[in-house]
């Protein structure tokens, strides 16, 4: 399909997915997260907050990757689920006085119901239009959040949402980071299981060749709908983590800019690999922090990155690097 990938085809593929290596990788990943969190919590509050953000955005990006990378549905309305979960949970605790254990599931339910409504509409059209329709639908929610001031607080958003109490209140930055790291690990493992399951394989089949999957007897529409509901669920989890991190939710959590950011995170790594989305999110958040400290033109830089990726590395940075590496290895010659 992509002529650039041929260079890697010459390598001998080892069977990577033996049971033992899978367990080792999983343990290594968990240990890695624990180490990073431990190291971070000894540093000041800035790195702790930064790593918390990275984990939240990584979770958000991985949830979008279920759609973009695995199912082949490019969504530009993914912030809708992130924002709806945050708004719903915030409203439950502010207006109804519900505790965390009630408000959080209600928020997730709201995100999934939103996804159900959106996709009943968006999945009726051909694949190319999905981007456009999800954008339009998400923009409607954003505009409601801005204009229905009685309910949503308008541009000021909703503030004063307390962090959950688990044994003890998660007030400190480091204790909240532990909470987010736990949520992230559990969610990431769940997504990992999903993409490795027969259901996940069917999604990949739909991505590669939907008519053939349909001919094989798969009701592809139903698979796409379930994939989008799952993606919304995990996006909602990320949204709520973000809500409790700041104690605040505003219209920017529903904005197109956020959807575009998270899509860029997925594409910066490599769509169709959860790990790539995680790396993409980390690079993106760090890059955004660095660029924003030098200039106010972050939006411009983000647009430029989009253009460069679309032109030179549409499959993502990891495949691009892999291809460069293969080319370099070939040019150095076969004496290694």
């Amino acid at each position: 399909m992509n002529p650039h990938l041929e260079a890697t085809g010459t390598r001998v593929r080892r069977p990577l997915w033996t049971d033992r290596s899978r367990t080792i990788r999983l343990l290594a990943a968990v240990a890695g997260i624990v180490l990073v969190v431990l190291a971070a919590s000894t540093l000041g509050s800035y790195p702790v907050e930064l790593i918390t953000q990275v984990l939240i955005y990584a979770l958000f990006a991985m949830s979008l990757d279920l759609l973009v990378g695995y199912t082949g549905l490019p969504s530009l309305g993914h912030s809708a689920y992130f924002g709806v979960a945050a708004y719903a949970a915030a409203l439950c605790s502010l207006k109804l006085g519900l505790p965390f254990w009630c408000a959080a599931p209600v928020g997730l339910l709201a995100a999934v119901v939103t996804a159900l409504l959106f996709n009943l509409i968006a999945l009726r059209t051909a694949r190319g239009y999905y981007l456009m329709i999800t954008l339009a639908l998400a923009q409607v929610l954003w505009s409601i959040a801005v204009s229905w001031t009685d309910l949503t607080g308008g541009d000021n958003g909703l503030s004063g949402i307390a962090r959950p109490v688990i044994g003890r209140p998660l007030e400190g930055a480091a204790s909240y980071l532990w909470f987010v790291a736990l949520v992230f690990t559990v969610s990431a493992m769940a997504m990992w299981r999903i993409v490795r399951s027969p259901f996940g394989q069917a999604l990949k089949g739909i991505r590669e060749n939907e008519p053939r999957m349909r001919a094989l007897g798969y009701e592809t529409w139903r698979y796409k709908l379930v994939a989008s509901l799952l993606a919304a669920l995990f996006a909602g989890i990320a949204g709520e983590c973000f809500l409790y991190l700041n104690g605040f939710v505003g219209p920017s959590s529903l904005a197109v800019a956020l959807s575009a950011q998270v899509l860029l995170m997925v594409l910066m790594g490599a769509a169709g690999t959860l790990f790539g989305s995680m790396i993409g999110a980390a690079v993106f958040v760090v890059l955004q922090n660095i660029v924003s400290s030098y200039t106010d033109r972050w939006l411009f830089v983000m647009g430029a990155i989009y253009v460069l990726f679309a032109l030179y590395a549409p499959a993502g940075a990891l495949p691009w690097l892999r291809e460069r590496w293969a080319r370099y290895r070939n040019s150095v010659g076969g004496n290694t």
Partner: peptide, 20 residues
């Protein structure tokens, strides 16, 4: 998809330029 993403990038660049 790359075409849509490319134009999305231009959308952000133009938005920021216009704001500037």
């Amino acid at each position: 998809l790359p075409q849509s993403l490319l134009t999305l990038g231009f959308l952000f660049m133009f938005a920021d330029l216009a704001f500037w």
